[in-house]
Every structure is written in structure tokens, then in C-alpha cells.
Design a protein around this nucleic acid. Structure first.
Lengths: 380, 380
DNA sequence: AGAATAGTGTCTATGAGACAGTATATG
DNA sequence: CATATACTGTCTCATAGACACTATTCT
């Protein structure tokens, strides 16, 4: 059980004595005071207060940003406004805090600010400290703080190049993790669903037109500290494309590139930005499983493909060699998997291969099981 | 392509002429001005401005809440501050708008407010109107508006009662959808991951201690209009419990109850709140598939169970009758599925049943396929 | 005794896996 | 010609599915 934390906001210029007093009360009650830093004020008289511990060269707004971080990391916000007065900076902070859904309490009802003051949120510091620090159940706004987050859609885009599984990664151009590889994705914009965002990002990153590329959700990653910029929740989608030479680099500002999956996961110099290593691993396992009971393997192939192309897909994704003859039989017999055309391909040595198109089935029945015990070769 | 929209904020008391002028410019450029309402001011001289069209009896903060809705629904926010001055209300609005990640432009650099003013965001109304309404690509802050959302974790909790699949639903006590049945869930609180939230809600709704109930993610629902209260993004989890008589109603305020799944999906008087009908359907299909390749079926059983109990689970979830003999063979032969104990049960007519415990395997290999073509009976 | 349930045995069809063999292309 | 590839055929083994049968309990 971690100790409850609180941040104090208000006009430090006018009410610093009361702030210190309240901070002392909260500390005595066993709480952590995240902000303000209990440090000496060095610019008395100014509207924006600076503390001794603040980095002296940084701008007001840099210090303010750091303060907001501390405020957001606390469980409760307490507004120290003994005369009801709330300054512009405090009003701004209140706006951000409200939008995040943190629990807010006030020393006095705020004057001249058109905000809702729920019942029970005007309370003196001593009572609040007792309520939160003490044993009793905290009042409603404390029990039900909500947190707002920025949702993003990230896409694990797989393809096969040179008979190996590749994933599309972008090199980050900005902090955090500047220069590291990351899974492409972006923030949800007004009016978009996560699926909309994913499709837009897919277009932007790959330069592909919508055509045909299907997206499916994998998982949502929401660990509170997964992104140092703040509360960002990423829903990850899976996309699969055939090997398209013109794709990489066709994107906007940040360069996108195909990277071999094994290399990006286990190679030296490979650690991805954020938790994207874990995401990629989960994506890999997912697509491996999908090949077992769905027809998604054909998404790796172009419109026309030979059975051996499809086999190469399975071999690349699973990392197993499969028996060519048995694979043929299996694929041809499973209804709806592939549809024969009257075309053949005879560009390389060997017998000419019949060409196929994708079938209508989405699910393989019976499934194409990957061999479980190592060492054995054999069909799916 | 919908027309781009803008909201104007700033001290209407001091700068209403400039606000009207800017609004006219934006309108002429083909944009929609969402706020302020182009209406007459009726309380000249007051800090908080009221318009003729505002509902006269409502409080300041109710009007402000409505205004925030309009602001949030616009693509761009323009701060009308010809002298740089920003009032408290505007500072509050700015805080909320920043936290939402909307694109903000300023007439002048804001004075005495410690916020970051990105390059290119101080621009006069005429230029902004031309940039946004015109053909050219809008500048960065316009192209990349972000949207903040309130994440929730909802849980589809299945169990089996009287040999039928049931789901735990709550009756909503508040609007919207007051009185309708809904899938239990709740908002993410500060410091929680979605998984944390789901586990807490599971505890709160079912009154169960953590013990043993496993949670897994199903999908995230993010349609922009899925919740009339605003932008709420729900990640849905799946939980399975054995039939526990003491569960229902053991929860807090809102009553939770087991409802038969078929009834809640297809029965008359059955439509669930929000998009929860769709969610439940997807959850049902998911658990049906999980029974095929995982050992999750044993989660429906208590600690000790007979093979026939497990068969009843499969029959209830799949809606098929299975051949008892073949099911026996299959379950006993699949390594890791169940572990024999030395206990037997002989309470009902029939031969005494050997009792089993869950095995260590999580995945069934080979899988237990449900019969695809109707009419045929037989084992999985 | 009769009904209900647990569990085993048996037969058949099907498919997986291994591998041989044939046909047809390239170089 | 050698070689690579595509595809078919055949054999074995494992399992699914159907069903008969026995054993054991409760009413």
C-alpha cells in the first residue's frame, strides 16, 4: 500500500503561509506532498513564483510543465484559496486537473470562476488530512477520481521479404527515445475511432491506398508509466501486406523501414522505444497463432500466388520447414482457402506452378497446426 | 469532407468587438464557428458573460459546461486577446483545452501565463482563416489535434448456472440508460493500468476476493459516439467464474445479477445499455473459441470437478450436445488438461464419478474442435 | 426394478506426417 | 546433362466420431 499523495495549488504569492501550514498537516497525516517543493521562494512579489530548487535558467513554462507532472502524479489536489481568490495560473492548472479528472478539494468556494464545486469538496486542510490519511473511507471525489488519457493507435505491420518476416518500424525523430526504432502509430484525432486512426496511420506510414489491407486489434497497453510524456494508452493493431517494394520510405517526415523481426527482437542494438519490444513480441506470437486457424496467410501474398509462396509464408512466420507435398494437399483440400486460376508461373527452374487467388473462407477448418515438438519436421 | 470548425475564447467582456470580427472572418472562409453563439450579450459589465440564447435560469457553471462541449467539438481554438490579456475563465478554458490536446492559436502572445506558445501559433484571424479554410496544408498544430478520452475497463463475467451460460450484468442507476442492463465496469483511476481497474471492478462487482479469477483482454471499443457523456473508450476484459451462489447482489450500490446469455442477447426486453449488446456478442463468440484451443473451460468448474461437469460447460457455451464417451477419452488423453485426484462423487444416480483438478496446460493440443456442421452430434 | 450416470471398448473415416516418385522447367 | 521445383501417390499412425456395452448408483 503506497501512501496517498496530494498537491497544493493556489496563489503562492498571496498565500504561501497557508500553503506551508496545509503541507505540514498533510505530511503529519502520513501523506506525500508532491507539489509545491518545500523550498524557499526566491522571487518575492512576482506573480509566477520561483523556488530555490527550480533550475534557474529555465523558462516559466518549463517549470510549470514540471509542476503539472507532479500534480498529475498525485491522488488529490488541494486548492489553497483562503479568501476564495483564484489567480490565472491556478485557473489554468484547475482546467488541466479537471480535464484529467483528478479529485479536487478547495479551502473556500472559488470566486468568479464558473466551475462546478461538488458537495463536500470545500473542506479545511485539517479535516481533509484526517479523512484521507485516516482510516475512514474517503469521500466520493477521492474514491472515484478518473483519469483522462491520450489514446493512440499503433500498428504492427508485417510483411515477408527475402523469405523472412519483416516488420515496419520508424526511427523516432523527437524525444523521448529520439533515434530509437518504434512501431508506427499516432494519436486519435477528434471524431476518429481507434480503427479510423489506425487506418489513417497505415496510409500515412506506408503510403498505401486503403486497398485490401485489413486491420485487426491485438491488445491495449495501458501501464501508467509506459510513456514518459504522460498518460498514453495505446491500442495495437495488426496489419499484413504483401512484399511491396515501393512502400518503405514513402511515408512522411519520419522514415519508415522494414526490419527483420528476429533482428529487431533479439539482435544487438535492437531495443525498441517505449514498450514496443513487448508489443512486437506479442504481435509475433499472435500472427503465428492466426496462421493456424485463419486464412490470414494469404494476406502476405499478392493477388496471384503459388502454393509454394504460401508455404514460404508459413515457414517464415513459424520458423519451421514444412513438407512441401503435405502442405500442397492440405491447402488444396481445405475448402475456401485458395481458389485455382487457369494461370501458371514458370519463371524459375522446376515445374510450372499453378497460380491461386485467395478463397472466401476466413477460418481454417480443420486448422493448420504448427508442429509443437521441435526436431520433428512435417506438415503444419 | 466536413467543414473545419473553430471556437473563439477570450475575455468577451473586454474584446467582444474583436471576437465578432474574427468570427465573421472565419465564417466567410467557410468555417463553422462553434462558440461563442453569435447572440446578444445581456449582462454587460460582468466578468462572466451571458448571452441571450443561454437558458436564463441555469448557473454559470452549467453554461460554462455547455460551452466547453462546443469548444471540444471544434477542430481549432482561437484565443482573442488583442492586448495579450487572458482572464481567469479563459485561463481555465485554456487548461482544459491544452489537456485535451486541441490545436490552439493566439491573437497575441499571452501575458503572465506560464504556458508554452509553439512557433507559428500567434497569428491574426485573417491569416488563420486563410490557412485553415484555404487549400494549403494547415500548419502543424492544426494537422495534429489530439483528443483525450476517459478510459474504462469493462468486464464480461461468465458463469454457468443450471447448465446454462450466464453473464453478470448491472442495472444502471443513473443516466444515460438509467434502468437498463449493462456490463459492469468503471473508469481508470490515477496510477491504475486497465488491468488494475478491471481487477478492482471485478472485486467490487462480484464481492469476490482476487483468488484465482483470471482476466484477459478482449477488445477496445472506441466509437466516438458510443457514450453520450463524451469520449469514453472502453477496454473489455473476460472473466470466468465457477457457479458461486453468494455472488450476485454482493456488490455495492448498483445491483449486479446473473442473466442468461441467450435471454439477454435475443430475449424481448433485452437491449443493453450503450454498445454492450455488441460487446456481449463478441465476448460470447470469443469464449466459444477459447474453449476450442485453451483449457479455460476448467475455470467454470470449482476446484474439484467431474469430467461430466466439464462436458456440461462445453455444452452450455457451445449450445451443442456432446458425446459423453468421446469427451471422456479426449479430456483424459490430452496431457495437462485435468489431473486425477483420488476422490469420487456419488451423490446422484449413476456410477460414481472420479473427481479432477485443473491441469497445468493452458493450451489444448490438439484442439477440441466444436462441430461445424449442424445436425451432427459427436465429440468436439 | 428402472432410470440415470460414468466410463470402456470397438469400428470406421479422416487427416497428419513421412517419403518416394514423376513431370517439367532453367541453366 | 544436372538441378531445382511442383505436384501426386502411398503407407502408417493418431484421432474424431459413432455407438454398443458394462458398472454403479439413486429413487
Amino acid at each position: 500500500m503506497t501512501r496517498p499523495s496530494v498537491s497544493l495549488i493556489g496563489s503562492f504569492r498571496r498565500h504561501y503561509a497557508e500553503v506551508l501550514e496545509a503541507a505540514q498537516l498533510f505530511t503529519d497525516a502520513g501523506m506525500v506532498v508532491k507539489s509545491p517543493p518545500m523550498s524557499r521562494i526566491i522571487n518575492h512579489g512576482h506573480e509566477f513564483v520561483r523556488f530555490e530548487c527550480d533550475p534557474p535558467m529555465s523558462s516559466d513554462h518549463a517549470i510549470q510543465a514540471a509542476t503539472m507532472e507532479k500534480i498529475f502524479s498525485s491522488d488529490v489536489v488541494y486548492v489553497v484559496n483562503p479568501d476564495g481568490y483564484i489567480g490565472r495560473t491556478t485557473a489554468y492548472e484547475l482546467g488541466r486537473v479537471h480535464e484529467r479528472g483528478l479529485a479536487v478539494f478547495y479551502a473556500e468556494p472559488p470566486k468568479d470562476l464558473p466551475i462546478d464545486i461538488p458537495e463536500g469538496t470545500v473542506v479545511d486542510a485539517r479535516s481533509l488530512a484526517k479523512i484521507i490519511g485516516g482510516e475512514g473511507a474517503p469521500p466520493d471525489p477521492v474514491r472515484r477520481p478518473r483519469v483522462a488519457a491520450l489514446p493512440t493507435a499503433d500498428i504492427v505491420i508485417f510483411t515477408i521479404r527475402f523469405n523472412r518476416l519483416h516488420v515496419l518500424l520508424v526511427k523516432r525523430g523527437t524525444d523521448p527515445y529520439r533515434g530509437r526504432l518504434a512501431i508506427p502509430g499516432g494519436f486519435v484525432r477528434p471524431g476518429e475511432s481507434l480503427e479510423d486512426t489506425a487506418r489513417r496511420e497505415l496510409r500515412e506510414e506506408t503510403g498505401l491506398n486503403d486497398a485490401g489491407i485489413r486491420l485487426q486489434q491485438l491488445r491495449t497497453y495501458s501501464h501508467p508509466q509506459r510513456d514518459p510524456r504522460g498518460r498514453i494508452i495505446s491500442t495495437v493493431f495488426l496489419a499484413i501486406t504483401p512484399d511491396l517494394p515501393e512502400v518503405a520510405g514513402a511515408s512522411d517526415a519520419h522514415r519508415a523501414d522494414w526490419v527483420e523481426v528476429e533482428e529487431s527482437l533479439w539482435g544487438h542494438n535492437s531495443s525498441l522505444a517505449f514498450d514496443h519490444g513487448e508489443i512486437l513480441q506479442n504481435g509475433l506470437e499472435h500472427v503465428r497463432r492466426l496462421l493456424e486457424h485463419t486464412t490470414i496467410g494469404v494476406d502476405f501474398c499478392g493477388e496471384l500466388f503459388a502454393i509454394s509462396d504460401l508455404r514460404k509464408v508459413y515457414e517464415a512466420v513459424w520458423g519451421f520447414e514444412l513438407n512441401s507435398g503435405n502442405f500442397q494437399r492440405k491447402v488444396r483440400k481445405t475448402t475456401g482457402f485458395v481458389v485455382k486460376t487457369n494461370k501458371v508461373r514458370s519463371s524459375r527452374p522446376g515445374a510450372p506452378a499453378e497460380l491461386f487467388r485467395r478463397g472466401t473462407a476466413g477460418i481454417l477448418y480443420p486448422p493448420m497446426m504448427r508442429p509443437r515438438q521441435r526436431g520433428r519436421t512435417g506438415t503444419p
